[in-house]
């Protein structure tokens, strides 16, 4: 069975039919079965090397994956850190625009020959909250929240992102949700994670939450001091198992 993948920058129609940049990694059509797509939502520091690496990893696992550049509009062609600084000064990514950009990526993935029509989102840090937001706004087959802050708690006044609690939207969650969190994280705190799990379970939603001891925020980031190898390795295994159950035909 071939394991070839192809990864490249593409253009897709995002929110409001805006032309936005995205990074697409997909299995090369061959003898592997078609599988669901994965929309990778980058963290606040932007559309960077490590997020593109994550996107390629999903393709290597057999899933076509796409990471839309959420800062395309403010900073086309800029380095990821410069783009993130510009987006921050502009007040961050509006929720409505995020949902539209993810919807554009969902549509683009669905058109691929290697897609079976299913789709999931996964996001990290601010993208974790945005993954939940997308799953409460779009019909998806699975969603993963990696330590998303401010899913329940409103951020302090003047926080770096202009976001609000998703508490009122949770009843609209359209798919099973995998949550991966660090026991030492404060945003989200273990208490907020426990409340989120209780709320979703009480609403009849399917949730699988895992909190890793010895890990804080950002434990999946291999290029940051927050990286925790045990949590990241186990977390990747949980993601692979979850997508295996929800994205394969």
């Amino acid at each position: 069975m071939t394991d070839a993948i192809r990864a490249e920058t593409v253009r897709i129609a995002g929110h409001g039919a805006d032309d936005i940049e995205a990074y697409l990694a997909r299995p090369v059509a061959g003898d592997r079965p078609a599988a669901g797509g994965v929309v990778v939502i980058h963290h606040m520091p932007g559309y960077d090397e490590s997020t593109k690496e994550i996107t390629r990893r999903f393709a290597a696992h057999g899933y076509p994956a796409m990471c839309p550049n959420l800062y395309t509009r403010e900073a086309p062609g800029a380095n990821p850190d410069d783009a993130a600084a510009t987006a921050r000064a502009a007040g961050g990514v509006p929720d409505e625009r995020l949902v539209g950009d993810v919807a554009g990526a969902v549509a683009a993935l669905g058109e691929l020959e290697v897609s079976n029509g299913k789709v999931a989102t996964i996001g990290y840090c601010s993208g974790g909250r945005q993954s939940v937001l997308a799953a409460c706004s779009l019909p998806l087959d699975a969603a993963v929240d990696c330590y998303g802050a401010f899913v329940l708690a409103d951020p302090p006044e003047g926080a770096p992102v202009s976001v609000t609690s998703l508490r009122g939207k949770l009843g609209d969650l359209s798919c099973p949700l995998l949550g991966l969190f660090g026991a030492e994280d404060r945003f989200p705190s273990p208490e907020e994670v426990a409340e989120l799990e209780k709320l979703l379970t009480g609403a009849g939603k399917t949730v699988e939450f895992h909190t890793f001891e010895g890990a804080g925020h950002g434990f999946f980031s291999p290029d940051r001091p927050s990286y925790r190898v045990e949590a990241a390795t186990e977390g990747w295994a949980r993601i692979r198992d979850f997508f295996g159950r929800h994205l394969q035909s």
Binding site: E74, A75, A78, N79, D82, A83, A85, T86, R88, A89, G216, H217, G218, P225, S226
Partner: peptide, 17 residues
């Protein structure tokens, strides 16, 4: 570090870079 005080000195008219 996990967190730092960050300062961006910018000229948006010249672009994000």
């Amino acid at each position: 570090d996990l967190h730092t005080v960050n300062v961006d000195l910018r000229n948006p008219a010249l672009g994000p870079s």
